[in-house]
Write a protein that binds this DNA or RNA. Structure first.
Lengths: 209, 209, 209, 209
DNA sequence: CATGAATGAGGATTCATTCAT
DNA sequence: TATGAATGAATCCTCATTCAT
């Protein structure tokens, strides 16, 4: 019987990587649209053009798949943030530049991977995230916290609970992406957003000046 | 034939309103904690201390219950916003004061009804909201949009897509409440947040000055 | 509070009889349309313009209500058959006239109480009929059986299992009423049916002649 | 990409057809005994020796299953009737032989598939039958109607509403099977029934002779 | 490794029955 | 006696997971 399976995937050494990645990508897309809890494994399988059973060959459970997607992208975010922080640090930047670098990295992530950003920041993951996934999140949080705290110490950033400031920043970013559903955020909006958010972080200093 | 049934009907009605309200309140609490999709009707029933069947006497389906909760609180928000706008308008306020009034009304709502605010702004309702529920949302959006637009025309508010500015504002507010999970937002944080958000809205003007 | 309860039913000594009868009549109508198993007590209550609880004041259960309806009409049928048999017997009729009298009584019943006839002959009552109800049925069956058997003995009726002949007769009658759903069987059809069914009972004799 | 999946698909399909047929057969048996409305899906599953979920892989709902069973057997009846009509037509039969052929085909069906015949002719399907199922029924009705009408025109069949005659015929047949519940109709009874029913159709002609 | 039919526990919904008023 | 809101067991249906091929 002749069937068109749609894609070459059974050949070569990296086949399982390819399949696994296809599943991860499909899962992200479907989770973003329907919520983790709202998507059926069959939907992911259909989106990945794979049989249901195949998903279970790569991930032991739906929860594990959810964690894998979360970890994949949160780790990507962490990598990006570290790279940005590294560049800023190498340049001997002041705390202000460091915060700005982290902000821009996050913004960049949100623009380049809108689905991933929405999935990560926009949903309630509490019910299924495991320790590994949380560890990545905690590391990112710690990094941002440190940058903000240092900025506050240096007088570049307004006073206030750093955790709250970060949460508001991220929240504003989430709002930004929510304002353009299913579309990339326009360039103009990005510029406005950056100014606006930066003002948020420095308003007190500005007021003082 | 006309008969005076005395209190019988009213009694039934009273009872019914009370039960209905208990279910709505329980549903809000449980939906907020577990997500609409993540809660079982049995959980709502247990939280409301009624039998499962009782919920179906008052709401035809889980979806209808979700809509009712959404509408109840979004309508409350609308009422609050209208009251705030009315007070500001009576005071002959400028556009700046009007926007500030709306912001404070929303903030106040988030502080006084943290569960409701989280339920409304924090979840993906797309899958089950009906036309009625959306109508309330649209009205609120229109109100805020108008205020921002007028503020921009008056030069009180920075330029930029008004929808985006509102989304960022709300997002920041969501982030704020998320930063203090299961607890009221501290007073100090509220003050900081207001300054920060206001700076967001006016940064350009400030920059220009 | 003034409400129109639609009917006077709370006055006089025979009130409960009236209510009970209203429920029985409503039940017959709804059972006939939706099947015993397919009707909800609430439907019967609505059709009887009575509250659900009221039905349970008169009948201990849905099953009891079903039995009561069945018994009511099967008993009516029995009464009619006895009257017809009585008249025929008094007239000193031959077995042929007796069978014809029973047939006409049944036909008359089917024409005058089409819902009742359909309910009685057309549904599977096996699951809920109690001994009392079956007793009435058995008595009718015995009566018909005796008439047919006597007719066969007298050579007026063709040979064959009398139970089968009765079942076919009744079946044909059911078919007749089914052919005119929601409407009375036309006079012309009745005449045809009588000839046809009578031919069924006597065909052999005719063939022999 | 075109791949030869070998027997995989066919295997799946075979398996599926077998399972589907097992479910259909089980459903017929249980529906016949307990009525469509009176049977739980779990009963069908148990009778088919499959899990509940398996039924839903093959039929989207209980209603769809009911329709499928109905259509399966009504279609079989149609096929049988057509074959009988074909044979009678080829033999150049007169209208009398044609009607007799149809009658015998139906009788044969009732004898060979007593459950199916009871399910089809004995229950109220109105509540769940869909257009497809009704189409088959209508086709059978039209076929019988045509035969009777032609027979009447040729003077072989008595006058009267053909729909009514058919309904009475079928009704008598239903009564016949009802007279021997859970058992095959005895040969002797079949012969009697045929004479009786034929007398029903021709009584007038006979009377006239 | 891939497949997808089968499984069955779990969740939404219905409805006969009860009982406080 | 009548009412109808409340009850919860029973029922339909879903979907994560398994496993024979």
């Amino acid at each position: 019987m002749l069937v068109d399976t749609g894609r070459v995937r059974n050949q070569g050494a990296d086949q399982s990587v390819t399949t696994r990645d296809a599943v991860l990508a499909a899962a992200l897309a479907v989770f973003t649209e329907y919520t983790y809890g709202g998507t059926r494994i069959a939907q992911v399988a259909a989106a990945a053009e794979v049989a249901v059973g195949t998903i279970y060959r790569h991930f032991p459970s739906k929860e594990a798949l959810g964690n894998a997607v979360y970890r994949q992208w949160k780790t990507q975010m962490l990598v990006d943030l570290r790279a940005a922080a590294g560049r800023a640090g190498v340049a001997g930047a002041d705390s202000r530049a460091m915060v700005l670098a982290l902000w821009r990295s996050t913004l960049d992530f949100a623009v380049r991977h809108p689905d991933a950003f929405r999935f990560l920041e926009y949903q309630q993951h509490g019910s299924y995230l495991d320790a590994d996934a949380r560890k990545v999140t905690d590391e990112i949080d710690a990094m941002c916290l440190a940058a903000i705290t240092r900025g506050q110490a240096a007088g570049d950033i307004r006073a206030g609970d750093p955790g709250m400031l970060i949460a508001m920043l991220l929240g504003a970013l989430v709002g930004l992406t929510r304002a353009y559903p299913g579309a990339p955020v326009p360039e103009a909006a990005l510029a406005v957003a950056e100014q606006a958010v930066w003002a948020m972080l420095t308003s007190e200093a500005i007021d003082r000046s």
